[in-house]
Amino acid sequence: MKAGRIHAYHEPITIDDIEEPKIDSETDVIVKIGGAGVCRTDLHIVDGIWKDALGNPSLPYTIGHENAGWIEAVGSGVKDLHKGDPVILHPLMSCGICPACRAGQDMHCTHSHFPGLDGTDGGYAEYLKTSVRAVIPLAPGTDPVPLAPFADAGITAYHAVKKLVPLTVPGTFVVVIGIGGLGHFAVQILRALTPATIIAVDTQKQRLQFAEEIGAHYTVLAGADGGVSGVRSVAKDGVNIVLDFVGEYQTPQAAIAMLAKGGTYSVVGYGGSVNVPTLEFVNREINIVGNLVGTYNELAELMELNRQGKVKITATQFPLQDAPRVMQMLDRGEIMGRAVLVP
């Protein structure tokens, strides 16, 4: 089968011919990939940013961690999935027995595998092997192809917003920095789950227009100050929450400057640093929250919001063979919403 694989860091992936995966365990599931989302994390993998955090995985391997498709084959212990069923996959293969899994925090599983990241083959391919614990069935007849980015971008945004729901009341101001693959989900999820007033911040006017179309109440073009003055013109005393889907360049500093006293800075994007004097935390009682990918149950909840038409995806489809070019397009900021590779 065809697969997009990383052979060396700082080099483009290549489309290779490799063997199809086979059932090895009673809980294995093989999925015929319908769509694989192209994520900025894939760019970071190629750049080696995740190498040490993931235990220096052996190369080559197939990347791609946002996957949806149809059941192709199942192990003997899998009873409720059948060939042809449409599914979306939680990105993590969790063990189900560690304390984190038993608490429902499967993204913190201590014995997990992360296809597409940690050396386990991912979904830039015609077929993917995963665990039954990662499979979320979709309604019969659902086209899974455009839904793939919900599997990481979608649930990461959902996870971050859901944690903030108790902090939002009518009159709450929430800033969303970065209206890209994750940010465009966050705007819609905020509208679905909270009464907050949403301020979208981005460096591109086209993305801000997009933010208005999907539910943002105000938009601010990030200038030399990262959008601080524009946000403060809407909320002069500062905002209650900033969701940062960039997390590098000047956004952490700008986010802190946007906050009102008692505000919360929720970090989703990464790559930069938060450099704040400790007196700022004390005097302004600022909270900083980090966010990882969401849980299996959160992905199921998000797919229900999608079924209800409350959270939609904007995605452009490309053939799998174009994966190296599409990754370059993403790196240059040329993808609106999300890109999906179709084998």
Score class of each variant (00 low, 15 high):
L138S: 02
V201Y: 03
L190P: 00
Q188L: 14
V201Q: 11
T194H: 05
T130F: 06
L147P: 02
K163Y: 06
V145G: 03
D121S: 07
A153D: 05
F210I: 15
A125D: 05
T172H: 01
L182P: 04
A160G: 10
A151K: 03
V135H: 06
A139G: 01
D152T: 06
S131K: 14
A153Q: 02
V135Y: 04
F150V: 08
L208H: 00
A211P: 02
G215W: 12
F150Q: 02
V187A: 08
T142W: 07
V201F: 06
A139P: 07
V132K: 09
Q209L: 15
V174K: 09
A200Y: 10
R191D: 14
I177A: 07
T197N: 07
L208D: 03
G178R: 10
V165I: 15
V175N: 02
I177M: 14
G171A: 15
G141M: 10
S112E: 10
K129A: 04
P115K: 09
F173H: 08
Y127I: 02
K129W: 00
I155G: 01
T120Y: 05
Y127D: 08
A211F: 05
Y158I: 14
V201I: 14
I198Y: 03
L138F: 09
G183V: 09
R133T: 12
V165A: 13
A196I: 11
Q209A: 14
I189Q: 08
S112L: 15
Q204P: 01
I189T: 00
P166W: 05
L193M: 15
Y127M: 09
Q204I: 12
A200D: 10
R191H: 05
G154E: 12
L117V: 05
P137L: 15
F150D: 03
T168A: 15
F173G: 04
V187Q: 08
T156V: 13
I155S: 00
I198Q: 09
T172R: 05
G123Y: 02
V161I: 15
F150N: 02
L128Q: 10
R207F: 05
G154D: 12
H159D: 06
G123P: 01
I177S: 06
T194S: 10
K163C: 09
G180D: 07
K163P: 02
G180M: 15
V175I: 14
P137R: 11
A200H: 04
L128A: 03
A211T: 03
Q204A: 13
A200W: 07
V161L: 11
V174P: 05
V165Y: 01
P149R: 06
L147K: 00
G180E: 02
V161M: 09
C109P: 06
T194Q: 13
D121N: 15
Q188G: 04
L164Q: 11
